[in-house]
Design a protein around this nucleic acid. Structure first.
Length: 486
RNA sequence: GCCCGGUUCGUCUAACAGGACAAGGACAAAUCCCUUUCAAGGAUUAAAUAGGAGUUCGAGCCUCCUAUCGGGUACCA
């Protein structure tokens, strides 16, 4: 049978990485076996609906390269694909009534006040309430009467007080619960909209969904789903409940953490393909030891039976590393396209920006990292004279001063400020002096940059800075050293 | 409270259906090589089966208890 998987987000705001992972896994499961991936918008909660959230979903999927076979704008006969539109077709009410007839559901006219009075205990700030099946005992006449009067009602699932229900999850195996633990959850709300729980079951069935991937938080309500499916006599889809993603403190990744949504990450300079790659590995691993995968490779390798069931910490450090790997592999054209804007933010002088950008390619993990690397090109920072001392280079204040003083006239007399020529020039000096290259390069680089580390060597910096600015900086270095030595 | 889950190096994880006392890989860390500084690249090191019982010839894999983390207990999804 052809796999039909679905991603069914609620348009309530940003795309949380947990949701993205769900979408990705749904997509991979389907595509791995040539199935269809469907997008369905679950907007049954009008209160939480956020304007523009659907756009975010669409944009995100597009950016990461997940294409759906069916969706709101791609009806293949199972539409509509937006639940609020499905409500208008009367589909949910129809099925709810069917359940009532079967005795698996019932009308409930209880007022909010009565419901509140049921809330007996308060544990850790949470109110515990169990519906007492009050309205189950209503007679047919009473129900008719209430309905006729237009009394607001909801439709609740009628769960038995005895026996057990077992449902099956691909990862967690069989989970059995006592039926008395199953509350009579609401299927149809008083505004006529179905609850998520009910809409989900109806839609998954009518859309012939074969595989359902969702967060762990639904594990508890899963048995109730099974009862619904069984009541209708429908085939239960394959369920895959995913472990949650936590932060470093092993707490649920909060919306506010600043890096919990796809957009946040993109804003921080992460590449969509790196994010997808990283997220795929949160709870799943391939058979071999590879870690870098394109979406296409993921499709080929993904086997949902290899999903892990323990919670995963969202490790930003590793994501940064992975992003760096992607940057290194990027072709130069695309790299420059993304790097140049950052360079331009920092460098206003007329310098070779492309060259500057390219220097950073193997040194950054995220594009904004470029800034710190290149600021010295724009302005020479104040630096401490002690920076001229370097054990490994055998560089001291005195030796640095000597090197700078001796190379200055050479550089003044030289006009071909290109890396190779400059390197040849200074190499000549190095040879004549019988010292290590670094012994000469260190003080020059220091004078040019005022930094302990730079994305390029001395001669490259000379080239980019140009003759005039370079000489100025070296003279400044000499002055600093002379003043310090006294 | 009640119900349901999870627990392998600091982190992500591997270990075929319980079978080798070096429990593998990656990130991070440390050391070394290379080097025109720092990276990159190469090499190496340290680091884990939550605790306790039990089943078994044999347990990270099975059972129970404890601890701990999480989820649910909504006219939210």
């Amino acid at each position: 049978m052809k796999i039909r998987s679905r991603y069914a987000p609620s348009p309530t705001g940003k795309m949380h990485v947990g949701n993205l992972r769900t979408a990705l896994y749904e997509y991979l499961i389907a595509k791995h076996e040539g199935g269809d991936f469907i997008l369905r918008i679950e907007d049954t909660d009008q209160e939480r609906f956020v304007e523009g959230a659907v756009d975010i979903i669409n944009r995100t999927l597009k950016q990461v390269g997940i294409e759906y076979d069916e969706g709101p704008d791609k009806d293949k006969g199972y539409g509509p694909y937006v639940q609020s539109e499905r409500v208008k077709t009367g589909i949910y009410l129809k099925y709810a009534k069917e359940l009532i007839e079967k005795g698996e559901a019932y009308y409930c006219f209880c007022s909010k006040e009565r419901l509140d009075s049921l809330k007996t205990e308060i544990v850790e700030g949470k109110e515990i309430s169990i519906y007492d099946k009050h309205c189950l005992s209503l007679s047919k006449e009473e129900i008719e009467q209430n309905l006729k009067e237009g009394k607001p009602y909801v439709i609740r699932q009628n769960n038995p007080q005895e026996g057990t229900t077992t449902f099956h999850d691909i990862l967690y195996g069989d989970i059995t619960v006592e039926n008395k633990e199953l509350d009579d959850m609401i299927l149809i709300k008083s505004d006529g909209y179905p609850t998520y729980n009910f809409a989900n079951v109806v839609d998954d069935h009518t859309m012939e969904i074969t595989h359902v991937v969702r967060g762990n938080e639904y594990l508890s309500s899963a048995p109730k789903y099974d009862r619904l499916y069984n009541a209708f006599g429908w085939k239960i889809p394959t369920y895959v409940h995913l472990p949650l993603i936590t932060n470093e403190e092993h707490k649920k990744l909060a919306k506010r953490s600043g890096s919990s949504s796809f957009e946040d990450l993109v804003e921080q300079g992460f590449l969509p393909e790196a994010i997808i790659n990283f997220i795929a590995l949160l709870g799943w691993s391939p058979e071999d030891n590879n870690e870098i995968f394109s979406l296409q490779e993921l499709i080929e390798k993904f086997d949902y039976r290899r999903i892990n069931k323990s919670p995963a910490v969202f490790d930003l450090v590793k994501l940064r590393w992975m992003n760096g790997e992607y940057i290194k592999k990027m072709d130069d054209e695309r790299y420059l396209q993304m790097a140049l804007p950052v360079v331009n933010e920092v460098i206003t002088k007329d310098l070779n920006k492309e060259k500057i950008a390219m220097m950073c390619k193997t040194r950054i993990e995220v594009f904004p990292d470029i800034k710190d690397h290149i600021e010295f090109f724009e302005t020479l920072p104040e630096y401490d004279v002690s920076m001229y001392e370097h054990k490994k280079m055998k560089s001291t204040l005195e030796s640095s001063l000597e090197v700078l003083k001796e190379t200055l006239p050479m550089l003044e007399a030289f006009d071909d400020y290109t890396n190779d020529s400059l390197y040849a020039l200074l190499s000549g000096y190095v040879e004549g002096k019988q010292v290590k290259t670094g012994f000469v390069m260190w003080p020059i680089r220091t004078a040019l940059s005022g930094k302990e580390m730079t994305p390029a060597g001395a001669t490259e910096i000379l080239e980019v800075l140009g003759k005039e600015e370079s000489l100025n900086r070296i003279r400044k270095g000499i002055a600093l050293l002379e003043k310090s030595i006294g």
